[in-house]
Design a protein around this nucleic acid. Structure first.
Lengths: 128, 128
DNA sequence: GCTTGACCTGGTGTTAACTCCAGATGATAG
DNA sequence: CTATCATCTGGAGTTAACACCAGGTCAAGC
């Protein structure tokens, strides 16, 4: 796949794709004989995986380390599992925070609901 | 309350508190006769509210608008409710994304679990 | 009355995560 | 053969969200 195709497929700019590769957020993509990137199926999976993880707020740092570990082979399976477990922990924490915020928003919106109703009633009375 | 106390209470730097006030992320805080900020109970509630919302990833822009609407009085109750409802929608969307990512992490970690076990077995065989 | 320390304002500095650009190159269409 | 076009690389520019700083004020302790 060309970079244009990957860019469209995952809705990331070409610059972002090149940037991700440069900083090691995805493994190095092979080039064809004239130096142009040719994304394999696996490259695409990496892109998609990274996009998903970034979307959920996992820190770039941790993901770079994960990719680096991956490239060092099977010796690092333990470390990778640890890394992901730690990130999962933090993800859960963030989700809990968001859950609390959500409940708070729900409450606030409900209060506004009642204010609006009250306001409408006042207006109605004013009409009488 | 002094800015130092508020800063410590909510774990935000004084610079951040002043910054938030400057850009309208919290309403203007009154100063005493010598120009020093004196946070009321309500000011504190705003700080805490904003911190909570920012923590959950609500965009600063939206919060600034919310504060501005609030300061315009009861006329804006409807708009405020709409604004919060929209932000809630987006918050829910983010949480759903994160939920998917979480499940993916769970799956990946589980796979690693098995890899580790397999690896240990190989080592054991090698010992024999 | 002088020093100290918390606080002020306005403005500059920093960092992360892209984003844009210039100049070069190789393939392709006419 | 030439012009166009997608792509390349290395490096500079941008934006958000603070963080830091200089120079000044004011109240309090000694």
């Amino acid at each position: 796949m060309t970079i244009t195709e990957v860019s469209e497929k995952f809705d990331l700019t070409q610059d972002t794709l090149r940037y991700y590769e440069r900083i090691g957020l995805i493994p190095h993509v092979n080039r064809n004989k004239s130096g142009i990137r040719d994304y394999t199926e696996e490259d695409c999976k990496w892109v998609e995986f990274i996009k998903c993880m970034r979307n959920a707020g996992l820190p770039i740092e941790a993901l770079i380390e994960y990719v680096a570990l991956f490239q060092q082979g099977d010796e690092t399976i333990g470390s990778r599992k640890e890394l992901l477990t730690e990130q999962r922990k933090q993800l859960i924490r963030r989700m809990e925070d968001m859950q609390k915020t959500l409940e708070r928003l729900n409450y606030k919106i409900e209060s506004y609901e009642q204010s609006v109703v009250k306001k409408e009633k006042e207006l109605k009375r004013a009409e009488d």
